[in-house]
Amino acid sequence: MTAAFVAVLAVIAVSMVFDYTNGFHDAANAIATSVSTRALTPRVALAVAAVGNLVGAYFGAGVAKTVGEGLVTLPKGTASLGVVFSGVLGAIAWNLITWYFGLPSSSSHALFGGLVGATLFAADGVVHWEIITTKVIIPMVLSPIVGLVLGFLVMLAVLWIFRKGHPAKLNRGFRVAQTVSATAMAVGHGMQDAAKTMGIIVLALYTGGFQTSRDHIPWWVFITSATVLALGTYSGGWRIIRTLGRRVIDLGPAEGFAAETVASAVLFFNALVLKAPISTTHTITSAIMGVGATKRLSSVRWGVAGNIVAAWILTFPAAATIAVLAYFLVRPLFR
């Protein structure tokens, strides 16, 4: 067994751990609104999210390519795998910290921050700041703004269209509609988040010399990444589900449907058209805030929202810092 083979196995193993934490950390993105409005029972909602993630992973190749080849240039040989290993460790650590405090931070930006942090201190490692700016930073800023504005506008449209409807009948109808919007949200989550893990594994296979092209994603990578993400999703992330479903605003079925519809549309557009890796967390959370603001501004618990935004801001540098510390510890093992 060669050193390169062992190193690639280590990266794949830690990537699967990240994938699993991503699943239970970001399960709330797809199902929090459906659970809080009682459109779906928790376990049914988790099952829908898990299946949606499996389906969405198949369509996330464009995002995987961006993650796998665009963000950084790694050093040569086995040392590059040490960088990837450390970057993913940084993302896992930040996922667990924010999960513990019930904060819906972005697993995506934790992963990007980890990779950038480890690469900065690696010999011959290069961070492509221009690509990170256009493919990560700008979408990171714009997607919450778009989610907030569209959430507000779509909810206004819903309120106007159904202004004469009977509240009880409308609630029943929107609970049924949420099964569709929650499924779309789950597929969008799979297109984004399973793809990121696939991109890391392909990067490891390529740099370890086990694959000649960064463009090719083996079928076993698709299946493994999607399955582990689905298993993590099904295990649930109840702390974050409570934050998104109840602590930001009190959601009704109509609000839940509007927020999920907006967020899934933004995820689909970025994955299929722009091929940009955006945060499902940022998108759905901002859509929920926009929807809630149609009632009155005070209906959004801005203190909770402020804590969430603070976690968003800290995610990239915090994961990068943890990855740097991890890199200095594991660097002697990846020579």
Rank of each mutant, 00 (worst) to 15 (best):
F5K: 05
V8H: 07
V11D: 06
I12V: 15
V14M: 09
V17Y: 05
V17C: 04
Y20R: 00
N22I: 13
H25F: 07
A28I: 03
A30G: 11
A32F: 11
S34H: 02
L40H: 02
P42L: 07
R43F: 11
A50R: 01
G52M: 03
G56H: 01
Y58P: 01
G60I: 04
V63C: 07
A64R: 04
V67E: 00
G70T: 15
L74I: 04
P75D: 08
A79W: 08
S86P: 06
G90V: 06
A91H: 10
A91F: 10
A93V: 10
I97P: 06
T98R: 07
T98F: 02
W99D: 06
F101H: 12
G102M: 12
G102P: 14
P104N: 07
S105V: 02
S108A: 12
S108Q: 08
H109F: 03
L111H: 13
G113D: 07
G114Q: 09
G117H: 12
T119N: 11
W129A: 10
I131P: 00
I132F: 03
I132R: 03
I132K: 02
T134Y: 12
V141W: 09
S143F: 14
I145L: 15
V146C: 05
G147V: 12
V149H: 10
L150P: 02
L150H: 07
F152W: 05
M155F: 11
W160M: 05
F162P: 10
P167W: 15
V176M: 14
V180W: 04
M185H: 11
M185R: 07
M185Y: 04
A186D: 01
V187C: 03
Q192V: 09
Q192S: 14
A194Y: 08
K196Y: 02
T197G: 08
T197S: 15
T197I: 12
T197Y: 11
M198F: 13
L205G: 00
T207F: 14
G208Q: 10
S213G: 15
W219T: 10
W219N: 11
W220Y: 14
W220P: 00
I223W: 12
A226P: 00
T227E: 10
T227K: 06
V228L: 12
V228S: 10
G232D: 03
G236I: 08
G236R: 13
I240A: 04
R242N: 13
R246A: 06
G252M: 09
P253K: 14
P253D: 14
P253G: 13
G256P: 11
G256I: 00
A263W: 01
F268V: 09
N270Q: 13
A271T: 08
L272D: 04
V273Q: 03
V273P: 03
V273L: 09
P277K: 12
I278R: 13
I278F: 12
I284D: 01
S286W: 00
A287N: 07
M289T: 03
M289N: 02
M289Y: 00
V291L: 14
V291M: 14
G292A: 11
R296V: 12
S299G: 07
V300W: 02
V300T: 05
W302P: 04
W302R: 01
W302Y: 11
W302V: 06
G303L: 03
A305Y: 01
G306E: 13
V309W: 05
W312S: 08
T315L: 03
F316V: 15
F316L: 15
A318K: 04
A319S: 15
A323N: 06
V324N: 04
V324Y: 14
L325I: 12
L325F: 14
A326C: 13
F328D: 00
R331K: 14
P332N: 10
P332I: 05
